[in-house]
């Protein structure tokens, strides 16, 4: 296995593994938010705002993975 090949595998693994957790997390977050909106529709504005903030924080983990993946893939580290 060449050096370049290992690098590509590492880049792919970095983004693939780092999207697993946030994927599950965002799914749970949105499902919870939708359930509470369905139960209590007049709070939609507040819940949606908090949902987006939560999604942003969760998604941040995947974005760190993307950054690492790009750094590996383009020979920066």
């Amino acid at each position: 296995m060449t050096d370049e090949g290992v690098r590509l595998i590492a880049a792919a693994l970095a983004i693939a593994l780092s999207t697993l957790g946030p994927g599950i997390g965002i799914g749970m977050l949105v499902s919870g938010a939708l359930q509470s909106i369905a139960r209590n529709p007049e709070t939609e504005g507040t819940i949606r705002t908090n949902m987006f903030v939560g999604i942003a924080l969760t998604e941040g983990l995947a974005i760190f993975g993307l950054v690492i993946s790009l750094l590996i893939g383009f020979n920066v580290i």
Binding site: A56, E59, G60, F64
Partner: peptide
Amino acid sequence: ISEFARIVSFAFRLFG
């Protein structure tokens, strides 16, 4: 830390 991580996540979310 998460305050500063916002810059990274803002930038890379849109770019990505």
